[in-house]
Nucleic acid binder design. Structure first.
Length: 362
DNA sequence: GATACGTGGCA
DNA sequence: TTGCCAAGTAT
Protein backbone atom coordinates (compact mmCIF):
# COMPACT_ATOMS: atom_id res chain seq x y z
CA UNK A 1 0.00 0.00 0.00
CA UNK A 2 2.76 2.38 0.93
CA UNK A 3 4.54 1.80 -2.35
CA UNK A 4 1.34 2.46 -4.26
CA UNK A 5 0.78 5.57 -2.20
CA UNK A 6 4.29 6.78 -2.78
CA UNK A 7 3.78 6.46 -6.54
CA UNK A 8 0.57 8.41 -6.31
CA UNK A 9 2.05 11.13 -4.15
CA UNK A 10 4.88 11.49 -6.59
CA UNK A 11 2.49 12.19 -9.43
CA UNK A 12 1.95 15.62 -7.98
CA UNK A 13 4.54 18.37 -7.67
CA UNK A 14 5.12 18.20 -3.94
CA UNK A 15 7.02 21.45 -3.63
CA UNK A 16 4.44 23.42 -5.59
CA UNK A 17 1.67 21.82 -3.58
CA UNK A 18 3.30 22.84 -0.30
CA UNK A 19 3.77 26.40 -1.49
CA UNK A 20 0.22 26.74 -2.82
CA UNK A 21 -1.27 25.35 0.37
CA UNK A 22 0.88 27.22 2.89
CA UNK A 23 0.60 30.50 1.01
CA UNK A 24 -3.17 30.16 0.81
CA UNK A 25 -3.42 29.43 4.54
CA UNK A 26 -1.13 32.35 5.32
CA UNK A 27 -3.46 34.79 3.58
CA UNK A 28 -6.90 33.25 3.94
CA UNK A 29 -7.11 31.56 7.33
CA UNK A 30 -10.00 32.31 9.63
CA UNK A 31 -9.30 34.22 12.82
CA UNK A 32 -9.54 32.04 15.94
CA UNK A 33 -8.69 32.80 19.57
CA UNK A 34 -6.10 30.02 19.80
CA UNK A 35 -4.34 31.24 16.68
CA UNK A 36 -3.31 34.53 18.27
CA UNK A 37 -0.24 33.10 19.98
CA UNK A 38 1.71 29.85 20.19
CA UNK A 39 1.16 28.89 23.83
CA UNK A 40 1.31 25.06 23.73
CA UNK A 41 -1.24 24.88 26.57
CA UNK A 42 -3.75 26.91 24.57
CA UNK A 43 -3.10 24.90 21.41
CA UNK A 44 -3.60 21.74 23.46
CA UNK A 45 -6.88 22.85 25.03
CA UNK A 46 -8.21 24.07 21.68
CA UNK A 47 -7.36 20.78 19.98
CA UNK A 48 -9.15 18.77 22.66
CA UNK A 49 -12.22 20.98 22.40
CA UNK A 50 -12.17 20.75 18.61
CA UNK A 51 -12.33 16.96 18.61
CA UNK A 52 -15.56 16.13 16.77
CA UNK A 53 -16.76 19.66 17.47
CA UNK A 54 -17.29 22.69 15.23
CA UNK A 55 -15.14 25.79 15.49
CA UNK A 56 -18.13 28.07 16.07
CA UNK A 57 -19.26 25.90 18.97
CA UNK A 58 -15.82 25.79 20.54
CA UNK A 59 -14.93 29.50 20.47
CA UNK A 60 -17.09 30.70 23.40
CA UNK A 61 -16.13 27.66 25.49
CA UNK A 62 -12.46 28.26 24.76
CA UNK A 63 -12.68 31.93 25.76
CA UNK A 64 -14.41 31.13 29.05
CA UNK A 65 -12.07 28.23 29.75
CA UNK A 66 -8.97 30.37 29.27
CA UNK A 67 -10.35 33.14 31.44
CA UNK A 68 -11.00 30.61 34.18
CA UNK A 69 -7.94 28.35 33.69
CA UNK A 70 -5.30 30.48 31.93
CA UNK A 71 -2.33 28.18 32.54
CA UNK A 72 -1.36 24.56 33.09
CA UNK A 73 -0.86 25.29 36.76
CA UNK A 74 -4.24 26.99 37.10
CA UNK A 75 -6.06 24.06 35.52
CA UNK A 76 -4.01 21.55 37.51
CA UNK A 77 -5.14 23.25 40.71
CA UNK A 78 -8.83 23.27 39.80
CA UNK A 79 -11.48 20.92 41.13
CA UNK A 80 -12.86 18.43 38.62
CA UNK A 81 -16.37 19.69 39.29
CA UNK A 82 -15.38 23.18 38.11
CA UNK A 83 -13.74 21.78 35.00
CA UNK A 84 -16.81 19.75 34.12
CA UNK A 85 -18.98 22.79 34.75
CA UNK A 86 -16.86 24.78 32.28
CA UNK A 87 -17.32 21.92 29.80
CA UNK A 88 -21.09 21.69 30.35
CA UNK A 89 -22.88 21.48 27.00
CA UNK A 90 -19.75 20.79 24.94
CA UNK A 91 -20.19 17.01 25.03
CA UNK A 92 -17.75 14.10 25.19
CA UNK A 93 -17.06 14.85 28.83
CA UNK A 94 -14.25 12.34 29.14
CA UNK A 95 -12.27 14.91 27.15
CA UNK A 96 -12.52 17.29 30.09
CA UNK A 97 -11.62 14.67 32.68
CA UNK A 98 -8.70 13.33 30.61
CA UNK A 99 -7.43 16.84 29.88
CA UNK A 100 -7.60 17.71 33.58
CA UNK A 101 -5.76 14.52 34.46
CA UNK A 102 -3.09 15.08 31.80
CA UNK A 103 -2.58 18.70 32.81
CA UNK A 104 -2.01 17.59 36.39
CA UNK A 105 0.60 15.18 35.08
CA UNK A 106 2.32 17.97 33.15
CA UNK A 107 2.23 20.13 36.28
CA UNK A 108 3.83 17.44 38.44
CA UNK A 109 6.08 15.58 36.03
CA UNK A 110 7.15 18.38 33.68
CA UNK A 111 6.99 21.38 36.02
CA UNK A 112 4.02 22.79 34.17
CA UNK A 113 5.82 22.87 30.80
CA UNK A 114 4.06 21.00 27.99
CA UNK A 115 6.50 18.37 26.66
CA UNK A 116 7.78 18.90 23.12
CA UNK A 117 8.51 15.44 21.80
CA UNK A 118 5.88 13.54 19.79
CA UNK A 119 6.27 10.48 22.03
CA UNK A 120 5.73 12.39 25.27
CA UNK A 121 2.84 14.40 23.83
CA UNK A 122 1.14 11.22 22.61
CA UNK A 123 1.46 9.68 26.06
CA UNK A 124 -0.78 12.34 27.61
CA UNK A 125 -4.26 11.18 28.54
CA UNK A 126 -6.85 12.14 25.95
CA UNK A 127 -4.18 12.87 23.33
CA UNK A 128 -4.30 10.45 20.41
CA UNK A 129 -2.45 10.39 17.09
CA UNK A 130 -4.30 13.37 15.61
CA UNK A 131 -4.01 15.66 18.63
CA UNK A 132 -0.38 14.71 19.25
CA UNK A 133 0.47 15.61 15.67
CA UNK A 134 -1.48 18.85 15.89
CA UNK A 135 0.30 19.96 19.07
CA UNK A 136 3.70 18.86 17.76
CA UNK A 137 3.33 20.71 14.47
CA UNK A 138 1.34 23.80 15.53
CA UNK A 139 2.92 24.48 18.91
CA UNK A 140 6.43 23.19 18.26
CA UNK A 141 6.85 23.32 14.48
CA UNK A 142 7.66 19.61 14.15
CA UNK A 143 6.94 17.88 10.80
CA UNK A 144 4.41 15.42 12.23
CA UNK A 145 1.17 14.36 10.52
CA UNK A 146 -2.10 15.51 12.10
CA UNK A 147 -4.72 13.46 10.31
CA UNK A 148 -8.34 14.26 11.09
CA UNK A 149 -11.50 13.87 9.04
CA UNK A 150 -10.70 16.98 7.00
CA UNK A 151 -7.25 15.78 6.07
CA UNK A 152 -8.56 12.37 5.01
CA UNK A 153 -11.22 13.99 2.86
CA UNK A 154 -8.84 16.46 1.22
CA UNK A 155 -6.09 13.95 0.55
CA UNK A 156 -8.47 11.23 -0.57
CA UNK A 157 -9.46 13.62 -3.35
CA UNK A 158 -6.05 15.00 -4.19
CA UNK A 159 -4.35 11.59 -4.22
CA UNK A 160 -7.39 9.56 -5.23
CA UNK A 161 -7.24 7.28 -2.20
CA UNK A 162 -10.31 5.04 -2.04
CA UNK A 163 -9.83 3.29 1.29
CA UNK A 164 -12.78 3.44 3.72
CA UNK A 165 -12.06 6.35 6.07
CA UNK A 166 -14.41 4.83 8.65
CA UNK A 167 -11.80 2.13 9.30
CA UNK A 168 -9.22 3.03 11.98
CA UNK A 169 -6.45 1.48 9.90
CA UNK A 170 -7.02 3.92 7.07
CA UNK A 171 -5.72 6.83 9.12
CA UNK A 172 -2.24 5.34 8.99
CA UNK A 173 -2.26 5.44 5.20
CA UNK A 174 -2.99 9.15 5.30
CA UNK A 175 -0.28 9.68 7.90
CA UNK A 176 2.19 8.12 5.49
CA UNK A 177 0.91 10.42 2.77
CA UNK A 178 1.37 13.49 4.98
CA UNK A 179 4.90 12.44 5.89
CA UNK A 180 5.68 12.44 2.16
CA UNK A 181 3.97 15.73 1.46
CA UNK A 182 4.44 17.89 4.55
CA UNK A 183 6.39 21.12 4.30
CA UNK A 184 9.52 20.90 6.43
CA UNK A 185 9.72 24.68 6.43
CA UNK A 186 6.26 25.19 7.88
CA UNK A 187 4.62 22.01 9.17
CA UNK A 188 2.19 24.09 11.24
CA UNK A 189 0.68 25.97 8.33
CA UNK A 190 0.80 22.89 6.12
CA UNK A 191 -1.28 20.85 8.58
CA UNK A 192 -3.61 23.70 9.43
CA UNK A 193 -3.92 24.51 5.74
CA UNK A 194 -5.08 20.97 5.01
CA UNK A 195 -7.70 21.18 7.77
CA UNK A 196 -8.78 24.70 6.90
CA UNK A 197 -9.16 23.67 3.28
CA UNK A 198 -11.36 20.76 4.31
CA UNK A 199 -13.46 22.96 6.57
CA UNK A 200 -14.03 25.81 4.13
CA UNK A 201 -13.51 24.67 0.53
CA UNK A 202 -12.98 20.93 0.19
CA UNK A 203 -16.24 20.25 2.04
CA UNK A 204 -18.08 16.90 2.18
CA UNK A 205 -20.87 18.12 -0.08
CA UNK A 206 -20.57 20.67 -2.88
CA UNK A 207 -16.83 21.34 -2.58
CA UNK A 208 -15.84 24.74 -3.99
CA UNK A 209 -13.26 23.43 -6.43
CA UNK A 210 -13.53 26.63 -8.48
CA UNK A 211 -11.74 28.63 -5.78
CA UNK A 212 -9.51 25.84 -4.47
CA UNK A 213 -5.87 26.92 -4.09
CA UNK A 214 -4.64 23.41 -4.89
CA UNK A 215 -7.09 22.56 -7.64
CA UNK A 216 -4.31 21.93 -10.15
CA UNK A 217 -2.86 19.25 -7.87
CA UNK A 218 -6.17 17.41 -7.38
CA UNK A 219 -6.57 14.05 -9.13
CA UNK A 220 -10.25 13.78 -8.23
CA UNK A 221 -11.01 17.20 -9.69
CA UNK A 222 -9.24 16.35 -12.93
CA UNK A 223 -11.40 13.23 -13.20
CA UNK A 224 -14.53 15.05 -12.04
CA UNK A 225 -15.14 12.56 -9.23
CA UNK A 226 -14.50 14.77 -6.20
CA UNK A 227 -17.99 14.18 -4.83
CA UNK A 228 -17.42 10.41 -4.92
CA UNK A 229 -14.66 10.75 -2.35
CA UNK A 230 -13.88 9.98 0.37
CA UNK A 231 -15.28 6.47 0.60
CA UNK A 232 -17.01 6.09 3.95
CA UNK A 233 -19.03 3.13 5.14
CA UNK A 234 -22.38 4.02 6.68
CA UNK A 235 -23.02 3.65 10.37
CA UNK A 236 -25.49 1.31 12.00
CA UNK A 237 -28.82 2.48 13.33
CA UNK A 238 -28.94 3.61 16.95
CA UNK A 239 -31.29 2.21 19.57
CA UNK A 240 -33.92 4.11 21.54
CA UNK A 241 -33.98 4.00 25.34
CA UNK A 242 -37.15 5.18 27.10
CA UNK A 243 -36.31 7.15 30.27
CA UNK A 244 -38.59 8.55 32.99
CA UNK A 245 -37.13 11.53 34.87
CA UNK A 246 -38.41 12.63 38.30
CA UNK A 247 -38.63 16.39 38.82
CA UNK A 248 -39.27 16.47 42.56
CA UNK A 249 -39.79 19.38 44.90
CA UNK A 250 -40.28 19.61 48.66
CA UNK A 251 -42.21 22.30 50.52
CA UNK A 252 -39.19 24.63 50.33
CA UNK A 253 -39.00 24.31 46.58
CA UNK A 254 -35.83 22.24 46.75
CA UNK A 255 -35.13 19.24 44.52
CA UNK A 256 -33.05 16.07 44.50
CA UNK A 257 -30.12 15.52 42.14
CA UNK A 258 -27.53 12.75 42.09
CA UNK A 259 -24.08 12.23 40.62
CA UNK A 260 -23.74 9.84 37.71
CA UNK A 261 -21.23 6.96 37.86
CA UNK A 262 -17.58 7.77 37.22
CA UNK A 263 -17.49 5.74 34.02
CA UNK A 264 -19.68 5.42 30.95
CA UNK A 265 -22.19 7.81 29.47
CA UNK A 266 -22.02 11.35 30.89
CA UNK A 267 -19.61 10.17 33.56
CA UNK A 268 -19.43 12.26 36.75
CA UNK A 269 -22.09 14.69 35.61
CA UNK A 270 -25.21 15.27 37.72
CA UNK A 271 -28.81 14.38 36.94
CA UNK A 272 -32.34 14.25 38.23
CA UNK A 273 -33.32 10.79 39.51
CA UNK A 274 -34.56 8.62 36.67
CA UNK A 275 -35.20 5.08 35.48
CA UNK A 276 -35.31 3.30 32.17
CA UNK A 277 -38.91 2.52 31.35
CA UNK A 278 -39.88 -1.09 30.81
CA UNK A 279 -43.65 -0.71 30.58
CA UNK A 280 -45.05 2.66 29.65
CA UNK A 281 -48.39 2.06 31.40
CA UNK A 282 -46.74 1.33 34.72
CA UNK A 283 -44.10 4.05 34.56
CA UNK A 284 -45.56 6.28 37.25
CA UNK A 285 -45.75 3.46 39.79
CA UNK A 286 -42.33 2.11 38.88
CA UNK A 287 -40.77 5.51 39.26
CA UNK A 288 -42.41 6.11 42.66
CA UNK A 289 -41.34 2.67 43.90
CA UNK A 290 -37.79 3.23 42.65
CA UNK A 291 -37.51 6.64 44.29
CA UNK A 292 -38.80 5.46 47.65
CA UNK A 293 -36.46 2.48 47.59
CA UNK A 294 -33.44 4.54 46.60
CA UNK A 295 -34.00 7.47 48.94
CA UNK A 296 -35.50 7.80 52.46
CA UNK A 297 -38.33 9.90 51.12
CA UNK A 298 -42.06 9.84 50.63
CA UNK A 299 -43.07 10.64 47.05
CA UNK A 300 -46.27 11.94 45.51
CA UNK A 301 -46.06 11.83 41.73
CA UNK A 302 -48.25 13.70 39.25
CA UNK A 303 -49.10 12.45 35.80
CA UNK A 304 -46.28 12.98 33.38
CA UNK A 305 -45.59 16.55 32.38
CA UNK A 306 -43.81 16.51 29.03
CA UNK A 307 -42.01 14.20 26.63
CA UNK A 308 -38.96 14.99 24.56
CA UNK A 309 -36.10 13.24 22.77
CA UNK A 310 -32.39 13.57 23.23
CA UNK A 311 -30.20 12.09 20.49
CA UNK A 312 -26.70 10.85 21.31
CA UNK A 313 -24.22 9.47 18.79
CA UNK A 314 -25.05 5.87 19.55
CA UNK A 315 -28.48 5.99 21.20
CA UNK A 316 -31.59 8.07 21.73
CA UNK A 317 -33.25 8.86 25.05
CA UNK A 318 -37.03 9.03 24.77
CA UNK A 319 -37.68 11.09 27.88
CA UNK A 320 -40.84 11.49 29.94
CA UNK A 321 -40.70 14.02 32.76
CA UNK A 322 -42.78 13.39 35.89
CA UNK A 323 -43.24 16.25 38.33
CA UNK A 324 -44.05 15.55 41.95
CA UNK A 325 -43.42 16.35 45.59
CA UNK A 326 -41.30 14.62 48.21
CA UNK A 327 -40.73 14.69 51.93
CA UNK A 328 -37.39 13.56 53.31
CA UNK A 329 -37.74 11.22 56.27
CA UNK A 330 -34.00 11.11 56.86
CA UNK A 331 -30.96 12.91 55.43
CA UNK A 332 -30.10 11.81 51.89
CA UNK A 333 -26.62 10.39 51.37
CA UNK A 334 -26.65 9.04 47.80
CA UNK A 335 -27.79 12.33 46.31
CA UNK A 336 -28.13 15.93 47.34
CA UNK A 337 -30.97 18.35 47.99
CA UNK A 338 -30.53 21.73 46.33
CA UNK A 339 -32.55 24.85 45.61
CA UNK A 340 -32.84 26.41 42.17
CA UNK A 341 -29.85 28.69 42.68
CA UNK A 342 -27.55 25.95 43.97
CA UNK A 343 -28.54 23.77 41.03
CA UNK A 344 -26.68 26.13 38.68
CA UNK A 345 -23.33 25.11 40.14
CA UNK A 346 -23.70 21.48 39.10
CA UNK A 347 -22.65 20.22 35.66
CA UNK A 348 -25.74 18.78 33.99
CA UNK A 349 -26.01 17.10 30.58
CA UNK A 350 -28.24 18.93 28.13
CA UNK A 351 -31.42 16.87 28.63
CA UNK A 352 -31.24 17.46 32.38
CA UNK A 353 -30.57 21.15 31.81
CA UNK A 354 -33.91 21.18 30.04
CA UNK A 355 -35.59 19.64 33.07
CA UNK A 356 -33.89 22.22 35.29
CA UNK A 357 -35.32 25.01 33.15
CA UNK A 358 -38.74 23.36 33.27
CA UNK A 359 -38.61 23.34 37.05
CA UNK A 360 -37.70 27.02 37.18
CA UNK A 361 -40.69 27.74 34.97
CA UNK A 362 -38.55 29.00 32.08
C1' DG B 1 -11.48 -3.84 14.95
C1' DA B 2 -15.88 -2.48 16.70
C1' DT B 3 -18.20 0.22 19.90
C1' DA B 4 -18.98 3.91 23.40
C1' DC B 5 -18.87 8.54 23.92
C1' DG B 6 -22.36 14.65 23.23
C1' DT B 7 -24.16 18.16 20.96
C1' DG B 8 -26.01 21.32 17.55
C1' DG B 9 -26.50 22.51 12.70
C1' DC B 10 -28.15 21.55 8.33
C1' DA B 11 -30.20 19.47 3.87
C1' DT C 1 -38.22 14.16 10.30
C1' DT C 2 -34.19 11.65 9.75
C1' DG C 3 -29.62 11.08 8.92
C1' DC C 4 -25.18 12.89 8.45
C1' DC C 5 -21.64 15.67 9.79
C1' DA C 6 -17.55 18.26 12.95
C1' DA C 7 -9.89 19.64 14.18
C1' DG C 8 -10.98 11.73 17.72
C1' DT C 9 -9.85 8.84 21.82
C1' DA C 10 -10.26 4.96 24.94
C1' DT C 11 -11.25 0.36 25.56
Amino acid sequence: MTKQLLDRALTIDIEAFQIDLVLWFTHDHRDMPWRKERDPYKIWVSEIMLQQTRVDTVIPYFERFMAQFPTVDALAAAEEEKVLKAWEGLGYYSRARNLHSAVKEVHEKYGGIVPNTPKEILSLKGVGPYTAGAIASIAFGLPEPAVDGNVMRVLSRILLIENDIAKPQTRKIFEEAVRLLISKENPSYFNQGLMELGATICTPKNPSCIVCPVQKHCEAFHKGIQTELPVKKKKIKKRTVPVAIAMLQNESGETIIEKRPETGLLANLWQFPNIEISDRNLTKEHLKTYLEERYPIQVDLNDHLVDFQHVFTHLTWQISVYAGSFKAKEPITNGTIVNAEQLDAYPLPVPHQKVARLMKGE
